[in-house]
Write a protein that binds this DNA or RNA. Structure first.
Lengths: 230, 230
DNA sequence: GTCTATATTTAGATAGAC
DNA sequence: GTCTATCTAAATATAGAC
């Protein structure tokens, strides 16, 4: 493990031994440029990996899209897998963020409303992230499992308690909290992950503001009220 | 297009010119053996593609798992893509089947209950199919779009009408039918496609009968009644 | 239908100059 | 940090004997 982690930061560590001492400003500038390039590559990688998968995407493609040479790309990321894992790592934080918002103090109905909206916005604004995450998890998360399992489990454990408290307080109907969380994840991600299917069936995507609103309202209705007539 | 389709059946067509006329029984036997082998290969392909994706899976792996030589595999399927598409084609039918059951005559509450159960059973019994389907759709269904779009659109169009009729009859709360269909798909598939995540969070999978029942009950509750307390 | 041997292509990765 | 040239391995696919 330490070997892998060592390799991962080689590029940035290489900058620590300049032949002569540059000004702080120059260092910052260089840093900024370097970071910018890394970010550009990561961006291209995300987009390409999400379209073709880890094996379907080639370094050539990614380098082309990031407008760097393949050799240059390997200067920043020492191999394909490191690049891929770097992309995933950034993803995980972003993906988990909305769930962190759940706290006992909130009104559960409002909390769920907010969550659905934020997740739908994520599906609309970050479809590549959503799909890559889905692909990785679906294949057993071989390169993310260790990083996924612990934080995910802890976070969800905590939110499950929050939901259970709401139920005990009579503010939410009695359902197994796990499955509420799964349903929220599943329904909101569906519009990003199955975008082509949604488009084939409904003829619209979340980028259409009317469709976005309609989706939001529908999901709220289904999850909060159900489809059984009252 | 015709070129592609022509190539696709080359293998089976090759069997039509035996040097001397064999008995009908012998033909049947040969057919059965041949079909059996095809099926074995398709099975191995499904399992491998669903784990590693189209590009991540190698013909070597598939041949090994099907217990045939690589060259022999190419006798039955002229190239990798043909094999992949053959797997997908079988999938699509299976995947769409449960939705066909929806008819106006049914009680909608029962119809939805049945659908959720059948789809959950599918997620439990055919996780590889579920995941491969998901992967293909997620990547834009490049090799299935033409075959997917039309039948899917037609089928859903029809079922949307059924749902709308139920709503008009007051048997179902007013929701946009599309989104009900999407929610049913999303929630039930989630347990197959995100199996590792479900396991990381809940510590169980659908193979556990208690968990299966709990999932079924929870999804029914959420979709039929919602989580807002009454 | 099945096998051995091999051709071909692609893509990940490195060496070494600048 | 970036480039040109090159190495290497893997994987798809085919030729041709049996």
């Amino acid at each position: 493990m330490s070997v892998i982690r060592k390799g991962k930061e080689t590029a940035s560590e290489g900058k620590r031994k300049p032949q002569r001492v540059p000004s702080a400003a120059a260092l910052n500038r260089r840093m900024r440029n370097s970071e910018k390039k890394r970010a550009t590559i990561l961006d291209a990688a995300l987009s390409t990996f999400s379209k073709y998968g880890l094996h379907g995407a080639s370094i050539d493609q990614i380098a082309l899209q990031a407008d760097v040479s393949k050799t240059n790309l390997f200067y920043y990321f020492s191999n394909k897998e490191e690049l891929y894992v770097s992309v995933l790592r950034e993803l995980l934080d972003l993906w988990l963020k909305p769930l962190r918002a759940f706290t006992v103090e909130q009104d559960p109905i409002e909390a769920i409303r907010d969550y659905v909206r934020v997740k739908l916005e994520f599906s609309r604004d970050h479809p590549a992230e959503s799909r890559l995450f889905c692909m990785e998890v679906m294949q057993g998360a071989p390169l993310m499992l260790t990083e996924l399992q612990q934080p995910l489990h802890d976070l969800v454990e905590n939110k499950i308690e929050v939901i259970q408290t709401w139920i005990d307080q009579g503010k939410l109907a009695p359902v197994e909290p796990y499955h509420l969380v799964f349903s929220l994840w599943a329904t909101t991600q569906h519009y990003a992950d199955f975008r082509v299917q949604v488009e084939a069936v409904a003829g619209k995507t979340l980028e259409d503001p009317d469709f976005f609103q309609e989706t939001l309202t529908s999901l709220e209705t289904i999850i909060l009220n159900g489809v059984r007539p009252r």
